[in-house]
């Protein structure tokens, strides 16, 4: 029987697993954030300007997604998509410091995760974005229309450039929640950083050190994200405001 190690630094023997897990987490995060943003922006615009038919649809979507646990959403999309997606993998192999490392980019499970995280995030991002759109005074769009611009052009050239600047501080909430939400994917066996930590813990019984280490990685990651967004917010600030 394997004896658990008492040296907490032994977890670093598994650095390649932590690395691939970290890459997977960032990969899922990136996709979820981008999909969430694009779908979220569309939802926000539809909810705000969609009129009698589209606006209630967007609102319903947002409320249902925000009102149900992500775990349920994950299982639902898993059971709908997994089999139709089929069995295939897109991955890359390379050697780093003498270890063979496999980074998996796409397979059915990863797609299920990206879809779930992206659609879930879109509902939250939509509300941040809608808040920012609402904060741009109505007079801005009226002025654009009075120049002869269509409503769509006014939204595109006048409202959104201002709303997207204003949304950054509140949107940074979602940008920093989302990396932590990705750990849910370990439930369906995707090898993200949390799943890898669990496996390392299982092998070494060093659960506590490896989870602490993962927590530290998250703290650093999220601090960097906040800092980056703060910088972007400052750089895009409108002079005089």
């Amino acid at each position: 029987m394997f004896q658990g190690s008492s040296n907490p630094f032994e977890i670093f023997f598994y650095w390649d697993e932590i690395l691939t897990g970290f890459i997977m987490t960032m990969w899922l995060y990136g996709w979820a954030l981008v999909i969430g943003f694009m779908v979220g922006l569309s939802l926000a615009i539809l909810r705000q300007y969609g009129g009698r038919f589209l606006s209630p649809i967007a609102t319903t979507y947002i409320e249902v997604v925000r009102g149900t646990p992500m775990l349920v959403q994950l299982w639902l999309i898993y059971s709908i998509l997994l089999i139709p997606l089929g069995r295939w993998t897109i991955y890359s192999n390379f050697t780093l410091f003498g270890r063979d490392i496999t980074v998996v980019f796409f397979n059915a499970r990863i797609i299920v995760c990206i879809v779930t995280l992206g659609l879930n995030s879109s509902a939250y991002q939509a509300e941040y974005l809608r808040g920012a759109i609402l904060s741009v005074s109505a007079g801005q769009l009226i002025a654009a229309q009075s120049l002869g611009m269509s409503k769509v052009a006014g939204i595109r050239h006048i409202v959104l450039p201002q709303a997207l600047r204003r949304v950054i501080p509140s949107w940074s909430n979602e940008a920093s929640y989302l990396p932590k939400y990705t750990v849910i994917v370990s439930i369906i066996g995707v090898a993200d950083i949390f799943n890898q930590a669990k496996n390392i813990g299982f092998d070494t019984l060093l659960y506590f050190p490896v989870y602490i280490f993962v927590a530290i990685i998250f703290v650093i990651l999220i601090s960097l994200i906040s800092k980056l967004l703060n910088t972007i917010h400052k750089r895009t600030r409108i002079p005089g405001l």
């Binding site: 801005q140 009075s146 120049l147 002869g148 611009m149 006048i158």
Partner: peptide
């Protein structure tokens, strides 16, 4: 209407300049 509005200028009480 968009085209016709471009021929009708409007100046607003609260200016409504595009702040960005």
């Amino acid at each position: 209407l968009n085209k016709l509005r471009s021929k009708i200028g409007m100046v607003f009480q609260h200016f409504n300049l595009f702040s960005h």
